[in-house]
């Protein structure tokens, strides 16, 4: 009788390994670990370290001394205004130019040639653009010469080593970036939606206002944020093309000076944190307003 009795069922739940696998943790998931460790070590840790360091002033004093110094010294706090004075107009201009151009280019058959040309300044980078513009926009450069030849001006315009030099370099590198992002959003919208609106009696402006704009608003908000953040961190062109001790003394110059000329890493970290917070603040403000708009597929529901 005993011998025939079935073995008492042992309460074997699923093994730990099975339970983990059920939640998505198995050998394949572990492949993410090297990159995650790397990111913690070289991105999260430095950020945290810099954050803490910014509260440990080199010169001593209480934990807020760096921040108090930044916000009491006009030479330091003016850098925020200087940077915003460059970044906001440039970003708005780039976006305002990019939108109508993207709408036109969307209809083009051979977009690739134009996108390739526009990707040039992005790949060449800010240093080369700054170096090129230094000659090109200079008093003896081709730009001023052309204007004088056409009789538009009599004296060369001063376009380098001031605000406008940096502005021009931010347009040359920033516009393609803004445009290509905008174009990818604009082409993501089903053209049949515009056709439908047209057959329903909407004029070109009404189609833009009531169909494209609400669908594109989230994309425009993201484009604005990314373009703004790029412009806000302007550095090499502000030094090379601008007036790094004056109107184009931007916040990254202040941070780099603190780090590499004064060797005050604590202050440099504080400035980097302030720079991050200003960027974050503007991005959050823009993205929060994004909540007011439609979010979802822009392709005309499911096919």
């Amino acid at each position: 009788m005993d011998a025939l009795a079935p073995a008492a069922p042992v309460e074997h739940g699923p093994s730990l390994r099975q339970r983990l696998a059920a939640r998505g943790f198995d050998a394949v998931t572990l492949l993410v670990i090297p990159a995650a460790i790397f990111s913690l070590l070289l991105f999260v840790y430095p950020f945290a370290f810099g954050f803490v360091l910014s509260f440990e002033p080199k010169a001593g004093g209480d934990w807020l001394a760096n921040y108090r110094r930044f916000f009491s010294d006009p030479f330091l706090y003016d850098t925020i205004a200087n940077t915003l004075r460059l970044a906001i107009p440039v970003t708005l201009l780039n976006l305002l130019l990019a939108v109508p151009i993207a709408f036109r280019v969307r209809l083009m058959r051979r977009q690739r040639l134009l996108t390739t040309i526009l990707v040039l300044p992005i790949t060449l980078g800010t240093v080369l653009v700054a170096e090129g513009l230094l000659n090109y926009l200079g008093p003896q450069g081709w730009f001023n010469r052309t204007l004088i030849t056409f009789g538009l001006i009599s004296q060369p315009l001063k376009l380098v080593h001031n605000y406008w030099g940096v502005f021009a370099s931010l347009v040359i590198t920033g516009f393609p970036f803004t445009f290509l992002l905008t174009l990818s959003y604009v082409t993501g919208i089903d053209p049949a939606l515009e056709q439908a609106a047209a057959t329903l009696g909407a004029s070109a402006w009404q189609r833009f206002r009531h169909v494209y704009l609400p669908l594109l608003m989230p994309g425009f908000a993201i484009t604005f944020c990314l373009s703004f953040v790029q412009a806000f961190s302007v550095f090499p062109s502000a030094v090379l093309l601008g007036e790094p001790a004056g109107v184009t003394r931007v916040i990254s110059i202040a941070a780099a000076t603190a780090a590499f000329e004064e060797y005050d890493y604590s202050m440099a970290s504080a400035i980097a944190m302030i720079m991050g917070f200003v960027q974050l603040g503007i991005v959050l403000a823009v993205l929060a307003s994004r909540g007011l708009f439609y979010r979802g597929p822009a392709s005309g529901a499911k096919g």
């Binding site: 049949a192 939606l193 056709q195 439908a196 004029s203 609400p214 669908l215 597929p297 005309g300 529901a301």
Partner: peptide, 25 residues
Amino acid sequence: GMVFQNYALFPHLNVRQNIGFGLKM
């Protein structure tokens, strides 16, 4: 009036707004 192959409904407008679109324009 036109009915499209993939319907081309405005994804950001509800049914009432979609239908009323032409009258509103």
